[in-house]
């Protein structure tokens, strides 16, 4: 798998490169600002771009804008955005009009190597990886009223993991229940939230995120 990294801090850039290469990916370019990212994406046609939100010269949301620009120039390019902070506002912008291949994670998640690699692979295959913190906040925002408040605690756990972008198998493994039980829960959640059931993991995630975002 071919990866382009955009990160302004040398230590982190180097660390990310090593981490990804250690798990058998090929880092074709590791750049330090948005313009270089756009150039690298155009030249290398990577399978995924890993981008930091804060990049020079403005050190604000330069990386986010570069990531969105890259996706506009190359539709379907998977992008994983990393940040010291997660904001629902940014998650919403990344997901707007999205067809998958989007990830938005806290930089802390890099510390858990296996999970991070899993997220990179998921996004590269057109899936979704949302940071648990974003999901927690989305759920809090929806907790006091509406259909989400009628879900059982177990169903809320499943919903949270589903929104992060996990497949049924991964959810079953995480909660130590059978895949059939997960399927039952998801079916019930979809009925409660009045969503179209779907077998496609990614479409399912997007439906859930869209639901949480719009209410």
């Amino acid at each position: 798998m071919r990866v382009v990294i955009a990160e302004d801090l040398f230590l982190l850039r180097d660390g990310l490169t090593r981490l990804l290469e250690a798990s058998g990916m090929k880092v074709t370019a590791a750049v330090e600002n948005g313009e270089q990212l756009l150039a690298a994406v155009a030249a290398d046609r990577p399978d995924i771009a890993v981008v930091d939100v804060r990049l020079p010269p403005s050190f604000t949301d330069e990386g986010l804008r570069a990531a969105l620009a890259a996706r506009q120039a190359h539709p379907g390019l998977p992008v994983l955005v990393l940040s010291q902070f997660v904001e629902q506002l940014y998650a919403r912008e990344l997901l707007a009009g999205s067809t998958g291949g989007i990830g938005y994670l806290l930089k802390d998640r890099v510390l858990d190597g296996a999970q991070f690699i899993d997220a990179v692979q998921r996004v590269a295959q057109g899936g979704t990886a949302m940071d648990p913190e974003v999901i927690t906040r989305l759920l809090t925002h929806n907790s006091s009223a509406g259909p989400v408040s009628t879900l059982s605690p177990r169903e809320r756990q499943v919903l949270a993991l589903m929104a992060e972008g996990r497949s049924n198998a991964a959810i079953a493994q995480q909660l130590v229940i059978t895949e059939r039980a997960v399927a039952k829960h998801t079916a019930s959640i979809f009925v409660r939230l009045d969503l179209q059931p779907s077998d496609d993991d990614n479409r399912r995630v997007l439906a859930v995120l869209a639901y949480l975002n719009n209410s």
Binding site: R54, T60, D61, Q84, F85, E87, Q88, L89, Y90, R92, R137, T140, H141, S143, S144, A145, S215
Partner: peptide, 23 residues
Amino acid sequence: PPVLADRGLADAVEATALDLPLP
């Protein structure tokens, strides 16, 4: 707040509003 530095007041207020536990 980082979003205040990045985007300014209106977006920062909106981001805070998104985190509230009510519509």
